[in-house]
Design a protein around this nucleic acid. Structure first.
Lengths: 189, 189
DNA sequence: TATTTTGCCTAATGGTCCTAGGCAGCTTAC
DNA sequence: GTAAGCTGCCTAGGACCATTAGGCAAAATA
């Protein structure tokens, strides 16, 4: 019998495709084995267990997202940079809902350290350089941006906005509001 | 043998407790049956299936959250109301992480119509009455508020903020930023 | 070519979800 | 107060998923 040529990377990539097609919750060791035409047990030479697979998937998604954002950010500053970050972030979640959902997995400190999480924070801090946010306030500003972006795309994806109204306009209002908040930080009131 | 006295409500409540104790992902028909000292199959006279259980749990959580927010909102307006909403929302997620997570389940239109989702929107609109947001802009403002609150508590819960910095200060900055956004809506820039 | 490594296999266990059909405890009717 | 029926929880059993142990054959190496 010919071998299927499996390895951890190929499995992770296939898991990512599967996630986008059928949702993270359906990314299972069995489904993955089926996709490669091998038995479930065969995957355990390459991944430790199902959780290990999900961690790899999360790391893949975080890295891809960081790449997208970095590309969007190149050569931009100020509100241009903010909007580019926002749009790239939202576009990734829209094009890769399964991967985006997978990226929300809670990581251990070691896993987080090996992840692109740091790059996300660095890029957000880069945006703040276009504004005049005091150093001591930057953590809070980063949290506001992440929270808002994450909350928006999550609700948009999960159908929280279904009923009515233009989501594109809502999104630009969100970006405008964040821009204003950064301009007036921390005297936002 | 004495009967356990099961019914859909008791099961849903127990599922909610289970969710807060061990996480939504571990709220399983088996675990619930174990908690009542009955066999798995016995639950199927009361709930249609595992998904039905999760829907009931989501509806419970949405209703509880709406109650909390309504109580916090009573007699307040303007920024007071905004902060009360925000704090009640965040407190619920903090005290009932499993229920809060369960409330994020994607509902069908019929389920959503029977849910407290409408109340959430109504209460958010009530907050806007303390500001001067044009009618046509209210949808967008509601989305900004929901996105930001949801994003923040989700990231806070999932450990996205672990490393450093005062989360209470971050939270008040978030509320301040939203207050400012509503005061200047839609000329946020 | 002989040897080692390694990849995928079979076999088996235990957990979860779910259906079908049975029997006993509770309810109601007389 | 007992007989009838309803209902609740049961046993039995199927399908799918996660995982481990041990085997054999294909690749890699000597």
């Amino acid at each position: 019998m010919a071998r299927a040529g499996l390895n951890a990377e190929r499995l992770t990539l296939a898991a990512a495709e599967l996630a986008d097609e059928v949702g993270v919750e359906n990314v299972t060791v069995s489904a993955l084995a089926r996709r490669f035409g091998v038995k479930d047990a065969s995957l355990y030479s390459h991944i430790r267990n199902a959780h290990d697979l999900r961690v790899r998937l999360a790391l893949l998604a975080l890295a891809e997202l960081a790449d997208r954002v970095a590309a969007a950010l190149a050569g931009r500053a100020g509100k241009q940079a903010l909007a580019a970050f926002a749009d790239a972030y939202r576009a990734y979640a829209g094009q890769h809902p399964g991967r985006y959902a997978a990226a929300q997995l809670r990581l251990t400190p070691e896993e987080a350290a090996a992840s692109a999480g740091r790059r996300h924070v660095e890029m957000t801090l880069a945006i703040l350089r276009g504004y005049e946010v005091p150093d001591a306030e930057q953590v809070h500003a980063v949290r506001l941006l992440h929270s808002t972006f994450h909350g928006y795309v999550t609700l948009e994806r999960s159908g929280g906005f279904d009923h009515s109204g233009d989501v594109e306009t809502s999104w630009s209002r969100v970006v405008d509001a964040l821009d204003a908040a950064l301009l007036n930080w921390p005297a936002s009131g």
